[in-house]
């Protein structure tokens, strides 16, 4: 899996994580994404943070 694919999957994960009314299928998709990315939730959200959070400068 290349980095861009990882980035997209991580963003998809965050999109699901930000839903307050997740269905069981969406929760299951999140777990599948963790396995596919071979990353912990913390690592995935850190990647999403790097992709989306603006600089403090």
């Amino acid at each position: 899996m290349d980095q861009e694919e990882k980035n997209q999957l991580a963003l998809r994960y965050a999109k699901l994580a930000l839903r307050s009314d997740k269905t069981p299928q969406e929760a299951s998709e999140m777990r599948d994404l963790e396995v596919k990315l071979q990353m912990s939730p913390q690592e995935i959200i850190n990647l999403v943070a790097r992709l989306t959070i603006p600089s403090s400068n």
Partner: peptide, 11 residues
């Protein structure tokens, strides 16, 4: 900004 983000640590 991108350079800083690459060095970004844990959220």
């Amino acid at each position: 900004a991108i350079e800083e983000l690459e060095k970004m640590g844990d959220v």
